[in-house]
């Protein structure tokens, strides 16, 4: 599904958090949103998802402008937000429809991919922070959303698990051609995953720069080209620069 933001701004009680964001996303594209803390990345994501309809400007999803929540959109929040009264398995099947057996099989498949096979019966209070976040990731991916919004999904995870889950995300993307908007603080993650990196800056946040990454996937995390892009991104994030 395609996605377009036109002059999107969001003001909270008189203070503007983000301002005049324009963005065209092609179907199946992976966009990275980068920016310092508080520049409005989560705010933008919530506007796209439809959870926050109070923005100004237009957001167009697949050709129609609306402020509603689309049920083909998946959202991985900055926190796990698991439902504490449901077991891990029931949390993952939460958004699925169909027969119980099918739902559970699908859920187990995704739990396996996030490395949580055998933990189906645990309750959220029994999980570590990273495990909880992985359940949340499974819960969002299992519905194979056409638009996937991710708010720093991997920031609570160790380097190795993070890389595995980035690859899982790419697998899902390859299979379902989801359009992805990924908020991240991790520049390596952005250069490894994204087709385009959008850099927000300032308060209120505005689009500072867009960097297109042409490299074929699978990318080599250690490649010189990515290192070069990283320094370019770092430079545009630099707060001291005017």
């Amino acid at each position: 599904m395609s996605l377009a933001l036109r002059d999107v701004s969001r003001t909270f009680n008189g203070t503007t958090a983000v301002q005049n964001v324009n963005l065209e996303v092609k179907p199946g594209e992976i966009i990275g949103l980068l920016g310092t803390s508080g520049c409005g990345k989560s705010t933008l994501l919530r506007a796209i998802s439809g959870l926050d309809p109070e923005y100004d400007g237009e957001i167009e999803i697949n050709g129609t402008v609306s402020k509603e929540i689309h049920d083909t959109t998946g959202f991985i929040f900055q926190e796990p937000r698991l439902l504490p009264w449901l077991s891990v398995l029931d949390n993952v099947t939460f958004g699925l429809t169909g027969s119980r057996k099918d739902k559970e099989n699908r859920a187990i498949e995704y739990l396996e991919s996030v490395g949580l096979r055998g933990k189906e019966k645990l309750y959220p209070r029994e999980l570590s922070g990273g495990m909880a976040q992985r359940v949340a990731i499974a819960r969002a991916l299992v519905t194979s959303p056409e638009i996937l919004l991710l708010d720093e999904p991997f920031s609570a995870l160790d380097a190795f698990t993070k890389m595995q889950l980035q690859d899982l995300l790419l697998d899902v993307w390859k299979k379902y051609q989801s359009t992805i908007v990924l908020v991240t603080h991790d520049i390596d993650e952005a250069t490894y995953l994204c087709d385009r990196v959008v850099i927000l800056r300032g308060q209120p946040g505005e689009v500072e720069k867009e960097i297109t990454i042409e490299q074929e996937r699978p990318r080599d995390r250690g490649s010189e080209e990515l290192a070069h892009l990283k320094s370019e991104i770092l430079e545009s994030l630099d707060l001291n620069k005017q």
Binding site: S49, L51, I69, F77, R81, F94, G95
Partner: peptide
């Protein structure tokens, strides 16, 4: 935040109440 999770999965008001 939990209500938002439900909304993201397209639950209507009645389903939100129940689930």
């Amino acid at each position: 935040k939990l209500i938002e999770v439900g909304k993201m999965y397209g639950l209507n008001t009645l389903q939100l109440v129940k689930r």
